[in-house]
Design a protein around this nucleic acid. Structure first.
Length: 264
DNA sequence: AATGCATACAACCGCCAGCTA
DNA sequence: ATAGCTGGCGGTTGTATGCAT
C-alpha cells in the first residue's frame, strides 16, 4: 500500500504565492505559531494550500530573519568550503549562514558556483619549487582528475589523500598554486575559488568556520570507516601540524597547517 | 520592437527518518 | 513491533526576468 498524500492535490492551490496569501500565512504564524502541525495550518489560516507548501513558503521567504539579496564573498567561501567537506548537505551549510536558507544556498550553488567550478576544472597542480620543511618528500600533485581526495576543511587546514604527494607545513601550503583556474576538482567534491585575478589579499578561502580542531571536523562531518578518526599520535614530530597517514587503520589523509592558496 | 536564449530563484516532488498510536 | 503520519531534506522543474540578436 502506498502512502497517502499529504493533502488533496485537486483542491489546493499551486504555483506562485499571492501577496494576500503571504499576508495570511505570515499573520497566522506570527500570531499562533505553527501549532505543531503544518498539515492542519492551511485550513486554520484560511489558505487553500498544501501544508508542505506553507512550510516552505514560511521557511524560505516569509520568515522575518530571512536575508535576501546576493551572497557576500565570505558566504561564498563558507559554502565552497563546506561543500567540499560535506557535499550537498544544504541545510547544514545554510545553518552556517545566518538568514540564508537551504534553498537559497542550493540555488546559488547550482546557478553560480557549480558553473564556475566546471568552467575551471582543469589545470590544478602544485608548484614543485617548494622546499619541504619536514621529513617528508614532496612531489607534484597530479593534474585535474588525478588530484584525488583533497579536503580543505577549516582555517589553515588542508588534507590530501596521498602521503607521497606532499611535504608539509606552512612552507608547502604557501606553495600550493592553482594554475589559471578558478577551481580544484576532487574525487567526489569540489572546491572553487573566486577568479579575482590572483590577488592574495582578496583571497579568503581558508577561513575560520568556527571548528575547534581538525579532529572535530573530521569526526563531525561524516567521514566513514577508517577515515573517521585522526590519530594525534601520527603527527610528524618534526612538523607539529602534519599527521602522517597509515592507510590500513588510520585516516587517509595528511593534515597540513596551511596559510593561503595562491591563485594566479 | 520582437524573438529566442540564459539566468535566477521560487516552488514542487518524492524519499527518508523520527515519532506516535 | 509496526504501520501511518509528519517534518525535513535534496533534486528537479517551472516561471519570471534580463539580455543579446
Amino acid at each position: 500500500m502506498g502512502r497517502s498524500p499529504c493533502c488533496d492535490k485537486a483542491n489546493v492551490k499551486r504555483g506562485p504565492w499571492s501577496p494576500e496569501e503571504d499576508t495570511a500565512l505570515k499573520n497566522y504564524v506570527q500570531r499562533y505559531g505553527t501549532g505543531g502541525s503544518w498539515i492542519s495550518l492551511p485550513t486554520k489560516a484560511g489558505l487553500k494550500r498544501c501544508g508542505k507548501s506553507c512550510r516552505l513558503r514560511w521557511l524560505n521567504y516569509l520568515r522575518p530573519d530571512i536575508k535576501h539579496g546576493g551572497f557576500t564573498e565570505e558566504e561564498v567561501n563558507i559554502i565552497c568550503s563546506l561543500y567540499n567537506s560535506i557535499g550537498s548537505r544544504w541545510s547544514i551549510i545554510a545553518s552556517h549562514l545566518p538568514g540564508r536558507t537551504d534553498n537559497d544556498v542550493k540555488n546559488y550553488w547550482n546557478t553560480k558556483l557549480k558553473k564556475k567550478l566546471l568552467a575551471g576544472k582543469n589545470g590544478v597542480y602544485l608548484s614543485n619549487t617548494v622546499t619541504p620543511s619536514c621529513n617528508t618528500s614532496f612531489t607534484t600533485l597530479p593534474l585535474s582528475s588525478e588530484v584525488g581526495l583533497v579536503q580543505n576543511l577549516n582555517p589553515n587546514t588542508l588534507i590530501v589523500s596521498d602521503p607521497t604527494q606532499f611535504s608539509s607545513s606552512q612552507e608547502i601550503s604557501s606553495g600550493i598554486s592553482i594554475a589559471s583556474s578558478s577551481s580544484l576538482a576532487m574525487d567526489n567534491s569540489y572546491v572553487s575559488w573566486p577568479s579575482n585575478g590572483g590577488s592574495e589579499d582578496d583571497y579568503g578561502f581558508f577561513m575560520d568556520l568556527g571548528f575547534g580542531s581538525p579532529y572535530d571536523i573530521l569526526n563531525g562531518f561524516g567521514f566513514q570507516g577508517k577515515n573517521t578518526e585522526v590519530d594525534p599520535n601520527l603527527a610528524d614530530p618534526s612538523c607539529p601540524n602534519l599527521f602522517v597517514n597509515d592507510t590500513d587503520t588510520k585516516p587517509q589523509g595528511l593534515l597540513y597547517q596551511s596559510q593561503k592558496v595562491t591563485l594566479y
